[in-house]
C-alpha cells in the first residue's frame, strides 16, 4: 500500500494532522468550544472557493477566511454581544454562502471543490505535505510554548487574568491556531468532517483519564489510530477516506463511552 506515492503522502499528512488536531482538540474540549471547529471549517469553504476563483493558492485563502472567522466568532461572543452558538451559526452559513457565490462566479465546473468538501487522499501533493508539516510544526511549537498558560486559562479564565496570565491573547491565539490546524487538515478529512477529528480524539481520551498529561497522550494516540486506521480501511475498501476516519473514530468513541473507566468507576475509582 505504501508503495503508492500518494498513499505515503496521505499517510504522512494524516499522521501530522492527527497529532496537531488531537492536541488542539484537547483545549477546545476543555473550553467547551467543540462546535467552533464546525464554524471555522465551513467558513474555510468560502476561502477555498475564493482561491479557485482568483487563482491563488487555496490554502492561503482558506487560512485567511478561517482565521478571520475563528477570531471573529471569539470577538463577538467574548464581548457578550451574542452567544457562541448563534455566532457560529451565522459565520458558518456566511462562509458557505460566500463559497457557493464564488463557485457560481467561476467559469466552468469546479470538480476540485468536492475533494475539499469531503477530503481526498489523492489530493495531497508533495507541496501540500510540506505546507502541512511547516504549519503543524509552527502551531504545535506555539502550543508547547504556552501549554501551561493555555491549561490554566482553560481551567479558569478569570483567575488566570488575575494572576497575570495574558488570557485574552491566549484565547485569540488558540482560535487562530485551531483555524490553521483545520485548514491544513481539510484535504485529508474534508471541510464537512474535519471538526470531528478535532473533537473525537480528546473526547475519547477523556473517557479513560482525568489527568491532563495522560489525556493529551491518549488523545494523540486515538487520533493516530483513527487517521491511520481510517486511511488503511478506505484504501482497501475503496471508500472515502474522510468518512472512514470519522466513522472509525465514532465507533471507538462510542465503545469507550460504554466501557469508560472514568464513568464506570465513579468518583473514587478514577484511574491514576
Amino acid at each position: 500500500m505504501l508503495e503508492s506515492a500518494f498513499m505515503t503522502r496521505a499517510m504522512l499528512a494524516g499522521v501530522i494532522v492527527s497529532l496537531l488536531l488531537s492536541v488542539l482538540g484537547f483545549f477546545i474540549l476543555l473550553r467547551k468550544m467543540s462546535f467552533i471547529g464546525v464554524g471555522i471549517a465551513h467558513a474555510a469553504f468560502g476561502g477555498v472557493a475564493l482561491g479557485q476563483l482568483l487563482g491563488v493558492p487555496v490554502l492561503v485563502s482558506a487560512a485567511f477566511f478561517s482565521v478571520a472567522t475563528g477570531v471573529g466568532i471569539g470577538a463577538v461572543t467574548r464581548n457578550g454581544r451574542i452567544k457562541e452558538d448563534t455566532a457560529i451559526g451565522i459565520f458558518f452559513a456566511a462562509g458557505m454562502a460566500l463559497g457557493i457565490l464564488f463557485i457560481y462566479l467561476k467559469p466552468g465546473y469546479s470538480a476540485d471543490i468536492i475533494s475539499y468538501l469531503f477530503g481526498s487522499i489523492l489530493a495531497v501533493t508533495g507541496a501540500d505535505l510540506w505546507i502541512i508539516a511547516i504549519v503543524s510544526t509552527l502551531v504545535l511549537g506555539l502550543i508547547l510554548l504556552f501549554f501551561k498558560e493555555l491549561l490554566a486559562s482553560s481551567f479558569d479564565a478569570e483567575l488566570a487574568r488575575v494572576s497575570g496570565i495574558p488570557e485574552r491573547f491566549l484565547f485569540y491565539l488558540l482560535l487562530g491556531l485551531v483555524s490553521l490546524g483545520i485548514v491544513v487538515s481539510i484535504k485529508i478529512v474534508g471541510i464537512v468532517l474535519v471538526s470531528a477529528l478535532l473533537v473525537l480524539p480528546a473526547a475519547t481520551a477523556l473517557q479513560y483519564s482525568r489527568r491532563w498529561l495522560l489525556v493529551v497522550f491518549l488523545a494523540v494516540l486515538f487520533g493516530l489510530i483513527y487517521t491511520i486506521g481510517g486511511l488503511i480501511a478506505s484504501y482497501w475498501l475503496d471508500i472515502p477516506s474522510g468518512a472512514t476516519i470519522v466513522i472509525l473514530g465514532t465507533i471507538i468513541f462510542l465503545v469507550s463511552l460504554l466501557f469508560s473507566p472514568v464513568r464506570r468507576g465513579g468518583k473514587s475509582k478514577v484511574p491514576t
Binding site: 501551561k148 491549561l151 490554566a152 482553560s154 481551567f155 488575575v162 494572576s163 497575570g164
Partner: peptide, 30 residues
C-alpha cells in the same frame, strides 16, 4: 501578580482533567 483572588462562583468545569495539586501549581505559573 501578588494579589490572590478566590471568586464567589468560579466558572469552572469540575470534570476538568486536573488533580488538586495541578490546580495549586497553576498559582505558580505566573
Amino acid at each position: 501578580s501578588r494579589i490572590g483572588y478566590v471568586p464567589q462562583e468560579s466558572d469552572v468545569d469540575w470534570q476538568f482533567p486536573v488533580t488538586a495539586l495541578d490546580v495549586v501549581l497553576m498559582g505558580r505559573y505566573p
